[in-house]
């Protein structure tokens, strides 16, 4: 499972979320030898508890829907390995060398579909306490805080979702919000107001994570009033950081064009400025970050990559979806 079966692929996909897995489904059905390199299966969608807006599926847990995406791609021959890609280089013959941590493969075309990563607070103590009370996945970790006192940092839909989920499990929930109001769906704001064990501190910045008793776990979150700068230590068992997402773009700097938000710039058919390198899903400049949109973008990217590879090898592109070779 850990190393790819071959050294040469038609299409290497970086990222195994909705975009990457759908691209793999489409490229495999076009008989492109396809490899997905990903740190996980399903990306953000897999950590979404309930998905109710994917057409054709009335309700699914995110992780189950993404598992089906994966199975469907593998059914048509796509291969998935768990690893991280750290470098892509253009080779003399126009193909690409894709360097993962434990192997290198060659690809005729590459798809960047590695999505978004959780934004960190970047305050003292945070990194050291990851897994020791600091967490970025409320769906995964909320049930471990039964009867505890927890803090949620953030003020958008994700933070409100996390607080509502936690309010049913934990004893108390404090939301630390640097703004003067929530920004998101009013349905969620109403639920926050209705929950008797949620308190919100508005206009409050997070300053540091403490392990005061040196027990190897979070004890306090230090916060400060935005205006007076007065600091307070909130005793807490867990800190759920829900301040949005960012593109982890450092390793692609200089490879493809990115915008000021570090999102990869693409054409309507998912081409980057480098021929042969495509991008799809949340990592791109496409504004709306939704599972169904990422899936559609992944399909487009695969079809465009197929056309590119066919053209490069001097063959005509067929415009039908081949299906599985019998």
């Amino acid at each position: 499972m850990e190393t790819p079966k071959q050294r040469l692929y038609d299409f290497v996909i970086v990222g195994g979320g909705a975009a990457g897995l759908t691209a793999a489904l489409y490229s495999s059905r076009r008989e492109m030898k396809t490899l997905i390199i990903s740190q996980d299966v399903g990306g953000q969608a897999a950590t979404t508890p309930d998905i109710e807006n994917y057409p054709g599926i009335v309700f699914s847990h995110g992780v189950d829907l993404m598992e089906t995406f994966k199975k469907q791609a593998e059914h048509f021959g796509a291969e998935l390995v768990f690893d991280s890609v750290n470098k892509i280089e253009k080779l003399d013959d126009g193909s690409f060398g894709v360097h993962a941590n434990s192997f290198v493969v060659q690809a005729e075309a590459v798809l960047l579909a590695f999505g978004l990563s959780h934004r960190h607070l970047e305050i003292p103590g945070e990194e050291e306490m990851i897994g020791k009370g600091v967490t970025y996945c409320a769906t995964c970790d909320a049930p471990l805080y039964k009867g505890k006192n927890v803090t949620v940092v953030g003020g958008g839909n994700c933070a409100m979702d996390a607080a509502i989920l936690l309010s049913k499990i934990a004893k108390t929930v404090i939301i630390v919000n640097k703004n003067s109001e929530f920004r998101g769906e009013s349905v969620l704001m109403d639920k926050i107001k209705a929950a008797s064990n949620i308190t919100t501190m508005f206009n409050t910045n997070s300053k540091a994570v403490l392990d005061k008793e040196k027990k190897g776990r979070v004890s306090h979150l230090v916060v400060a009033d935005v205006q007076s700068k007065k600091e307070t230590e909130i005793p807490t068992d867990g800190i759920f950081v829900e301040i949005g997402f960012t593109v982890n773009a450092d390793w692609i700097k200089g490879l493809v064009d990115i915008d000021e938000r570090k999102q990869i710039k693409i054409t309507p058919n998912c081409e980057t400025n480098v021929p042969g390198i495509f991008a799809a899903g949340d990592v791109t400049t496409v504004e709306y970050k939704q599972v169904v949109i990422s899936a559609g973008e992944g399909a487009k990217a695969a079809l465009q990559a197929h056309a590119y590879v066919m053209q490069k090898s001097g063959k005509r592109t067929a415009f039908i979806d081949w299906g599985k070779k019998k």
Partner: peptide
């Protein structure tokens, strides 16, 4: 692990191996 946790479902097969 727990059944509600997406990443755990990735870890499981690795641990089996």
């Amino acid at each position: 692990w727990a059944s509600w946790c997406g990443p755990c479902k990735m870890q499981g097969p690795i641990v089996d191996e």
